[in-house]
C-alpha cells in the first residue's frame, strides 16, 4: 500500500524529517508516536501534499505510484485521506455540499457516475450514524462554530463517506474528552477493512486503547527510532519519551 524510503523533508531550510522508512500493508493499522517537535505533523502534511515542505531525499510509493509527484487532490482522488489535526472552517460552504463535491471528485477519478442528490443523502445519513451526528450538521457550514469534538467527528464522517484506501489520522484524539474519543474511535473501528490501511499519529497512548494498532513506531527528531507492537505504546506510557534520546542511533526492532 505505502512504502516510505529514506524520506527527508525541510521547512525553510530546516530539516524536520531526517530519513523515515516505513512500510504499510493493506489492512494494517500503524501508530506513529513521538514527542512534540518530532516531525509527526510534518510527516502527515508531506504525505497529503501540503505546500511549504521541501523533499530533499527519499521517496514515497503509494500503490505503485510516486506519491510525491501528485497534487494534493490527485492523492485524495487515489484514496489518500488526511484527518486534520486542526480542521479548517469554510464560511458559507455547507458540510453536505463539500461532502458531495468531494465524493463526486473521487468517483469521477474512479470512472464512476456522479451520485444523485437522493442517493447521496441516503448514503450520508447511513454514515452519520457511525459518528453519532445528527442531520443538522449537514447544513451547517464546514466546521464553522463546531466544537473540537464536532470537528473531529466531522473528519471521520468525511472519511466514512470517501472510503479511502489509506487514512492518516493526525492527532485525531487531541482536544477530545473521553466520550468524544470513544465516539470517534468507534467510528474509525467501524471503518477498519482488509483493503484499508490506517496511519494514526498521536502523542498519547490513550487513543491506542480504543483503536488497537498492529504496529507502533516511535518518531524522534525526524526518524523512526523504535518500532514494535502495541506493547511498545504501553512502555512509552510508563517511561515517557525521554529514554529515546539515549537509544542507540537508528535502532529499530
Amino acid at each position: 500500500m505505502l512504502t516510505i524510503k529514506n524520506l527527508h523533508a525541510s521547512v525553510d531550510g530546516k530539516e524536520i524529517l531526517r530519513g523515515i522508512d516505513l512500510t504499510v500493508n493493506p489492512g494494517e493499522i500503524h501508530a506513529i508516536m513521538g514527542p512534540n517537535g518530532a516531525g509527526k505533523s510534518t510527516l502527515s502534511n508531506v504525505l497529503a501534499g501540503r505546500e511549504g515542505y521541501e523533499i530533499t531525499q527519499g521517496e514515497v510509493i503509494y500503490k505503485g505510484e510516486n506519491l510525491l509527484e501528485l497534487e494534493p487532490e490527485e492523492r485524495a482522488q487515489r484514496g489518500v485521506f488526511l484527518a486534520f489535526q486542526y480542521p479548517v472552517e469554510i464560511p458559507g460552504v455547507s458540510n453536505v455540499y463539500l461532502l458531495k463535491a468531494a465524493l463526486n471528485a473521487v468517483r469521477k477519478y474512479q470512472g464512476l457516475e456522479e451520485v444523485d442528490a437522493m442517493d447521496f443523502l441516503t448514503l450520508v445519513r447511513e454514515k452519520m450514524k457511525l459518528v453519532k451526528m445528527n442531520e443538522e450538521f449537514l447544513h451547517r457550514n464546514v466546521n464553522e462554530g463546531f466544537s473540537g469534538g464536532e470537528k473531529k467527528r466531522n473528519e471521520i464522517l468525511q472519511m466514512a463517506v470517501l472510503e479511502p484506501a489509506l487514512a492518516i489520522l493526525d492527532e485525531t484524539d487531541s482536544g477530545l474528552d473521553i466520550d468524544a474519543l470513544r465516539t470517534v474511535s468507534e467510528g474509525v473501528n467501524a471503518l477498519r477493512a482488509e483493503d484499508r490501511s490506517i496511519v494514526m499519529i498521536t502523542h498519547y497512548q490513550r487513543l491506542l486503547d480504543h483503536i488497537v494498532p498492529d504496529f507502533v513506531h516511535v518518531l524522534s527528531e525526524g526518524r523512526i527510532v523504535k518500532s514494535g507492537d502495541k506493547e511498545l505504546a504501553k512502555e512509552l506510557e510508563k517511561s515517557g519519551y525521554s529514554w529515546i534520546h539515549d537509544a542507540p542511533e537508528g535502532e529499530t526492532a
Binding site: 497534487e71 494534493p72 492523492r75 485524495a76 485521506f81 486534520f84 479548517v88 463535491a101 471528485a105 473521487v106
Partner: peptide
Amino acid sequence: EDQLFYCKQRGLDA
C-alpha cells in the same frame, strides 16, 4: 491556503 488545502485533500481540484 488552509481552506484551499483542506478542499484539495478531499479531492477537489484547485
